[in-house]
Computed example of a mutant assay.
Amino acid sequence: MTGSGKMDGGVMEVSPFRLKPWFSPRPWGRKSLKPWYEDTGTTELVGEAWLTGPQCVVEEGELAGKTLAELGPQMGGEFPLLVKLLFPNEKLSVQVHPDDAQAQAAGETRGKTECWYVLDAEPGAFVMLGLKPGVDAKMLAASVADNTMESLIEKVPVSVGDMLFVDAGTVHAIGPGVVLLETQQTSDVTYRLYDYGRPRELHLEQGLKVIKPKTQAGKVAPKEMAGFIRLIEQKYFVVDRFELGRAVEQSLTLEGPACLVGLRGKAWVVTPGSEVELEPGKAVVIPEGTGQVIVDAEQGATFVRCVAPATSASI
């Protein structure tokens, strides 16, 4: 029994379920996403695999064929975390996201704070994160015409295992040669400041209004916890990494909405009456109120737990 819906006192309870990734074409993406995905279903360049996007479809069980957005009312509202895999083959645009107050003032539901966990990185791989000291909005605007914006932003070398916090208001971009697991607020509000000459719309006026000269963005040191590694803990999300080397069964208590993302090996998410396979490159959503789940895995399985809000993640 997988991804089932049950009635309890007139309220629909939703068991954990696995979503099919939704592939987003981007001009900076890749033709092939192997070894993560054998087929994207398109010949276009794909830059993002959305694992918990509102349009992602349940793969198995009684809820099969329903989108995550359609299940929102049964789960108490919109799923608060948008988790993606990013596959840049070229530099992404330089961009900035508003915080909640700025987004709502512009008529949006919420802002966009995010983080990046580096799953793969070629030698010399980098991201750009935050303005260099002394750079202001006027300098940033002038840099569009002479193609010098990149020189005004801090370049941060990255390697496998790095976690980077991207605070709202931070000017940022991603370089090629990496695979990133991105966890963010469920929002797609992006103001593109510079795009290396690609024929896409810029949002310079909106972006300059929400830029913050200093933010909390940057690399985050991992913390050893009891049975897992805490990669980041912020207001909107907590992200933890589990390596099931010797222990092949892990009990997790999840008090808030969460998802598990498979990175390597086979695992199964088990609750009373429900068992869902956790596959690499896919997410299993754990609706709020599920409580405790068991992850039964083959030796060597690795997965990430993404939970909202920050106070919800405990083992």
Rank of each mutant, 00 (worst) to 15 (best):
T183K: 00
S159C: 12
M149T: 14
L129C: 15
I174Y: 06
S143N: 11
P123R: 10
M163H: 06
G130D: 10
G124H: 08
Y194N: 10
Y117F: 15
A142R: 15
D188L: 03
I174C: 10
Y117T: 05
V178Y: 01
C115R: 06
L119C: 06
G175Q: 05
G124R: 12
D195M: 03
Y117W: 15
V156P: 03
F126P: 02
L131F: 08
T148R: 14
V127E: 01
D162T: 06
A141S: 14
Y191E: 10
S143F: 03
G177H: 13
P133A: 09
V171Q: 12
K112C: 07
M128K: 12
L131W: 05
Y191N: 08
E182Y: 00
D146N: 15
C115A: 12
E150T: 14
L129S: 14
P157L: 00
A145F: 04
Y194H: 13
L164G: 06
A141L: 08
A137P: 05
A173M: 11
R192H: 07
P176I: 02
S151P: 02
P157A: 02
W116D: 02
A173I: 08
M139L: 12
S143V: 04
P133V: 00
M163I: 12
D146V: 03
H172P: 12
A173C: 12
M163N: 09
D195A: 05
L131N: 01
E182K: 07
A173G: 11
L164T: 09
V178E: 08
V158R: 05
Y117Q: 09
V158G: 03
D188H: 04
K155D: 01
Q184L: 04
K132T: 04
I174A: 04
G124K: 11
S151L: 13
V118S: 00
M139E: 13
D188W: 02
V127H: 06
P133N: 12
T113M: 04
V156Y: 01
C115T: 14
M149H: 01
H172S: 07
L193V: 12
V158A: 03
G111R: 10
T113I: 05
L152N: 11
L119E: 11
G134T: 09
G169D: 07
S151H: 11
S187T: 08
P176S: 02
K112V: 07
V156G: 01
L129F: 04
T113K: 13
A125P: 15
A145L: 09
G124W: 08
V171E: 15
D188C: 05
S187D: 02
V166Y: 01
V144Y: 11
V179C: 09
Y194T: 04
V118R: 00
T170H: 03
G177F: 09
D136C: 01
V160L: 09
D120G: 04
L140R: 00
I153Y: 05
E114N: 10
V144S: 10
T186Y: 02
Y117R: 06
G134F: 03
T183S: 14
V156C: 01
V166D: 01
K132D: 02
A137V: 12
G161S: 13
Y194D: 13
G161R: 04
T148S: 15
A121D: 13
S187G: 05
A173P: 12
A173D: 12
Y191G: 01
D120S: 14
